[in-house]
Structure formats: C-alpha cells, structure tokens
C-alpha cells in the first residue's frame, strides 16, 4: 500500500523540516505563531520548563516528565498513523511528507553533550524560549550561549566524527 507520507530522500540534513512546495509569507507564518503560543502556555502550565521537574526526571523520582513525553509520543504516533491511513493532506492540498532520520554518530556524542546541558539548564531548546518569556531573564544568556554552541558546531563540523 503506498504510504501518504513520502519519506523524501534529501542529502542528510535533519534540519530540513519544511517540505511544503509553496513558500510561506509573513502572514501565513502567523499560524505557526499561534501554535507556538499555545505550546508555550502548555510548557509553562505543565511545569515542563521547570528546572526542578527536570531534576525529578533525571533522578527517577517523579513520573510527570515521563508521562508528558510518553503520552506526547503516543499521540504523535497515532496521529501519523491516521494521516497515513486516511491520506490526509495539508490545508493547501499537498501530500504530507516527513524526512527520515539517518543514523549518525552525532546522535550519540551530540546526544550525550545535550543531555549534560539539559540537566544543567533544566531546559531543552523549546523550554528556553518559554523560560525567557515567563520572566527568567537570565536565561537570555543561556539562549545566546546555545546559539554560540550551535555556531561552534557548524565551525568544527568537519573535524567531528559523524
């Protein structure tokens, strides 16, 4: 059975997330602002952006974060099954496509580095933005440093094992 989700072959780059053929305008981008706002409120209200909650998680002392991530994955998984099964299109009528993840040693080495940082900051990149928005202004420093870390990765990328 042909899948509605075409796993497009693109030269390995996990950051190509937009497979829509039509480009977005400043106005059409506003819908992502709305999704982001809702998302930020959920982050705050479920205390996912709390350093304490991340500590509970890494110490296996609360189910909260495991419940959040687990039920998010379950919901995403079922959603993708429904999209495939009923061949659901985008609102502009395109077939939905997701680029597959290709294995790379970076997922181990980079993953470990991110894990170390996640425990220190109590934040993955999404919560960083919500922490700043909710008034933890020192986290602006964390965000700038994260941009610097990303830039440094780009600089030395060819020298790292992949």
């Amino acid at each position: 059975m042909p899948s509605a989700i075409v796993n497009k072959e693109i030269k390995h780059d996990d950051d190509v997330q937009n497979t829509q053929s039509v480009s977005e305008t400043a106005f059409s981008n506003l819908k992502y602002l709305v999704v982001g706002i809702l998302f930020g409120i959920v982050f705050l209200k479920a205390e996912i952006i709390s350093w304490y909650r991340i500590q509970e998680m890494f110490r296996f002392q609360s189910f909260h974060m495991y419940g959040v991530i687990g039920s998010a994955v379950a919901t995403g998984l079922i959603s993708l099954l429904i999209i495939r099964k009923f061949n659901i299109k985008t609102i502009s009528g395109e077939s939905i496509s997701v680029i597959p993840k290709v294995f790379d040693k970076g997922q181990i080495f980079g993953g470990l580095a991110f894990g170390l940082g996640w425990a220190i900051t109590g934040a993955c990149p999404g919560p960083l933005y919500a922490q700043i928005g909710s008034g933890y202004l020192a986290v602006i420093v964390t965000l700038l440093s994260a941009v610097a870390g990303t830039w440094f990765y780009g600089l030395i990328r060819n020298k790292l094992p992949h």
Binding site: G106, F109, A113, G117, P125, S145, A146, G149
Partner: peptide
C-alpha cells in the same frame, strides 16, 4: 547559563 547553554546548542545540533 553559559556552559549549560553551550552544551545544549552544540549537542542538539551535533545530534541533529
């Protein structure tokens, strides 16, 4: 802030 943020930015991109 600085070291933690750097590891988050470096690590996530390295991990894709």
């Amino acid at each position: 802030l600085v070291l933690g943020g750097f590891l988050v930015g470096f690590g996530t991109r390295y991990a894709g």
